[in-house]
């Protein structure tokens, strides 16, 4: 297990190295003077500023040296300076990564828990009403643009049924309230964005877990469990779901990158102060160091999610534990 973890971590680090090299190449491949590209479009950077950038990034050196300098900076935790926000990229992202993680994880948990529960219930009656609804819902959920779902929910909840806030992450008037009230306020703000993001995946997990459960429920060991007098609920949630969860886990890992992409759009729609919103703002300003920083951290989140998925897969499936 430990050696597996070490191997996974080394591989993850290599992937991140790849992301850094890609970032470097993208900036250099962009048309125009890299110094101007890095400074961003802010109504013309001053000559001193450009000179400072050339100095920092070693832009007069050969390409390979520039890459070395860039890698060295990243290793020291320096992803550059955002000239638009006038802050280091790392500190900018540090302010924004929390809300994004909160949003993405909430959506992930919501979609897996509700989706799996629906799928399990549907699997008990393969031709029942719920089964039909699950497949229709999955087909529809896949085809709806996530940002449009968000907008429709805003229209619904802002004008028709104003029970959830439709914008931002916290109410300004509660800024000085005790933490528990602020936490509740954030949770209240989280409902619509998290649900918007979860809804697509929820439908897919429902369809997947239904198929997976139906397969598992036909397995011999389920018959064995029933033959020893196990109550149906224990058969479903103890014996069957633990096996049926394996493909769900795989997909959850694979979907994580898509979830982050979706979060980008959802944050923009709901003004959620996360990395997606930051990416959007910095792209409009052509603030490349920030964009590249977001790409770096978003990829890092996917790498971490993949490692966690692999680990939990091993914990869930004893056949993968130990050797091999």
């Amino acid at each position: 297990m430990t050696s597996f973890l070490i191997r996974r971590l080394v591989y993850g680090a290599l992937l991140m190295l790849g992301v850094v090299v890609l970032n470097f190449l993208l900036i250099r491949m962009a048309p125009g003077d890299p110094a101007v590209v890095i400074a961003g479009e802010m109504g013309g950077a001053s000559e001193e500023m450009l000179a400072a950038i050339r100095q920092d990034y070693g832009l007069t050196e050969p390409l390979i040296v520039q890459l070395g300098i860039y890698l060295g900076n990243v290793l020291r935790g320096d992803l550059g300076q955002s000239f638009f926000f006038n802050q280091s990229v790392v500190s900018l992202i540090a302010q924004r990564i929390g809300p994004t993680i909160l949003l993405v994880l909430s959506a992930q948990v919501l979609s897996i828990v509700i989706g799996t529960a629906l799928g399990v219930l549907a699997a008990r009656k393969p031709s029942g009403l719920l089964s039909g609804l699950v497949s229709v819902f999955a087909t529809i959920g896949y085809a709806v643009p996530v940002f449009w779902t968000g907008i429709m929910l805003i229209i619904l909840f802002a004008s028709v049924l104003p029970v959830f806030p439709v914008e931002g992450m916290a109410s300004i008037k509660l800024r000085d309230a005790p933490w528990i009230i602020r936490a509740a306020d954030i949770a209240h703000h989280l409902v619509l964005p998290a649900f918007t993001l979860a809804i697509i995946y929820l439908a897919q997990y429902a369809r997947l877990s239904r198929a997976s459960m139906m397969e598992v429920l036909g397995a011999d060991y389920i018959r064995t469990a029933r033959a020893k007098g196990t109550p149906e609920r224990t058969v479903l949630f103890h014996h069957a779901l633990r096996n049926a969860a394996l493909p769900i886990l795989t997909v959850a890992g694979l979907q994580f990158g898509n979830l982050i992409s979706g979060a980008l759009l959802v944050e923009t729609v709901f003004n959620w102060p996360g990395m997606g919103r930051l990416a959007f703002d910095s792209i409009l300003r052509r603030d490349y160091p920030t964009i590249m920083g977001v790409l770096f951290f978003a990829s890092a989140m996917v790498v971490v999610a993949n490692i966690l998925t692999d680990l939990s897969y091993r914990l869930a499936d004893p056949r993968l534990r130990g050797g091999a």
Binding site: L26, A30, L264, V302
Partner: peptide, 21 residues
């Protein structure tokens, strides 16, 4: 392939589109 799967697709596409007009 695995490397490309690590990059969040929409974000990567945003970067590409912005860089190359």
């Amino acid at each position: 392939t695995e490397f490309f799967q690590v990059l969040p697709a929409l974000l990567f596409a945003m970067v590409l589109v912005t860089l190359f007009s």
